Computed example of a mutant assay.
Amino acid sequence: MYDLIPLQQSHAADELEAEFKDLLIVLFQKYLFKDGFDCNVMGIPYLGSYELITKHLINGNIANFDITRIAEDDMRYLLLAWKYRNGKRGTHFLKTFIKCTWGNEFEIQQLWHHKETKYPLGLITEEEIEKTGLNKNDFFLTSRIRINLTQREARDFPYEIAEMLKNTLPARLFISEIVKETSCEAGVSLLGDSTEYSVSKYDCTEEQKEEVTEFGVNVFGEGTTYSLAFFTADNS
């Protein structure tokens, strides 16, 4: 299409017509090819230009934020996954969305809930059930999901991307938590029969402190007492 081969191979009556053909080809390549190509692939926009892909991502409410952070190939892949390969937009699309907009170092964990605990206060992963020796039959699988950021060096998970996930996932899937796990030595205070815990006077390295980040805000600050959403105690 770019070279207009049929026009090049068409008959020219004289030198003037040949010059007009060459001029038309140059003008087409410079001013019209991009728009013409996008029109030609309108039904399969992931093959189109950066501008066409951007328009479909925004119009489809797939990535309605500053998408300059996304590589062009990832944008094509995201649009393809959303529009053609995963119409139900389940966990596969969720993984695709995070991979394209943020990176590869994460896990998607579906959460279970204890049958005798008020919903949703007893959420836990299948791995945590096994680690703590609990009976899996005492739990039921929910539609709530935990995104576990697994990268060693802390990196922001932009709030705008987290918000956008609400628009791209079906109502049956609910992102309950976005967490970053780390480890450090600390004193743990437990109140009797309480579900609230506090960690105080921590002793961890500067590298560990830098790793503990959630949505770009340091969890460990300058104080001596810190709150956690979940912790695992190791008495060794």
Rank of each mutant, 00 (worst) to 15 (best):
E160D: 12
R155A: 14
R89Q: 00
A162D: 09
K115P: 02
E160I: 15
L134P: 08
L173V: 08
A63H: 05
E163Q: 15
I70K: 06
Q110Y: 09
L80G: 02
I129S: 11
D156N: 15
W102S: 01
L149M: 06
E160Y: 14
L134K: 14
G133H: 06
T96C: 13
K131D: 12
K115M: 04
L169T: 00
D138E: 12
M75K: 15
T96H: 12
N135Y: 13
W82H: 13
I62H: 00
Y77V: 08
L165D: 11
D66K: 11
M75D: 13
G87N: 15
L123P: 03
F174A: 05
K118Q: 13
H92C: 07
T117I: 13
F140G: 00
L80A: 06
R152H: 14
F139C: 03
R155V: 08
R146M: 12
T150F: 02
L123D: 06
G87F: 04
D73F: 14
N167R: 07
W112H: 07
N167P: 02
C184G: 07
N64Y: 01
M164L: 14
E105K: 14
T101W: 01
L79R: 01
W82R: 04
C184K: 07
L149G: 03
G103T: 12
L165P: 07
E177T: 07
K180V: 11
L141W: 03
E185K: 10
Q109P: 03
N86Q: 05
N104S: 08
K136T: 15
T117S: 05
L121V: 04
K83P: 02
L173C: 06
L149K: 06
I161V: 10
I175D: 08
